[in-house]
């Protein structure tokens, strides 16, 4: 079993690099969202939101150590800012909130369980946290309650599917490329198979 306590340099680098790659993908997703928003209207944001949680799911299920979900999401936000995301410096706060939402779920399993349901729950956790945050930031209290409910449900669904499930699919595909050899996920899978 790899060292449970600290992060190795390789793990630190992997989490930052994941943050960077997903930052690029997130920026691409922003364009998707902007176009969809122009066509389908404002609720689109809640539908597409889940994808912005995916790095924390991927990082956590690869590294399997406390903090991976949170740190990767914050880093992805940081790199997006440097690449010029439309959301600006505030993205750092957004990233921290979303990362914390996912981290809370992993913490509840004491960083031991990374099965698909837990990953989807982490996506929902991030969705709930981010919903509270956008509530405060954009003054959602002034919106109609019915609409709010629809937005909330959509966002949770999006977190579960575009965050949790998609993250699971990505990790499985990555595992098949052999790039994850020697990491915590590899040990878990090998010892499960043995």
């Amino acid at each position: 079993m790899p060292d449970k306590r600290g992060w190795t340099l390789r793990e630190t680098l992997i989490v930052t690099v994941l943050g960077a790659v997903f930052a690029v993908l997130y920026l691409g997703w922003v364009q998707v969202w902007l176009i969809a928003q122009a066509i389908f209207g404002p609720v689109t944001m809640d539908v597409v939101m889940g994808f912005w949680f995916v790095v924390s799911i991927v990082a956590a299920s690869i590294i399997r150590k406390p903090g991976a979900a949170f740190v990767s999401e914050v880093l992805a936000a940081g790199v997006q800012i440097l690449l010029g995301s439309p959301a600006g410096l505030l993205l750092l706060v957004t990233g921290a909130v979303q990362g914390a939402g996912a981290e809370v779920v992993f913490a509840a399993t004491r960083w031991r369980n990374y099965s698909l349901p837990v990953l989807m729950a982490a996506g929902v956790g991030a969705a709930i946290f981010s919903f509270i945050y956008t509530w405060i930031r954009f003054d959602y209290g002034a919106l109609e309650p019915g609409l709010l409910l629809v937005m909330f449900v959509l966002r949770c669904l999006s977190g579960a599917v575009l965050g949790g499930w998609l993250g699971y699919v990505i990790v499985e595909a990555l595992y098949r490329t052999g790039a994850l050899a020697g990491l915590a996920i590899d040990h878990a899978k090998r010892s499960a198979a043995a």
């Binding site: 340099l9 390789r10 992997i14 690099v17 595909a173 990555l174 490329t177 790039a179 994850l180």
Partner: peptide
Amino acid sequence: VIPLLAFAIRRAGRTAIAM
């Protein structure tokens, strides 16, 4: 996307060794 992610992770591993 997946091959690029795999590349990034491998590169992270190599960079860790180099550093």
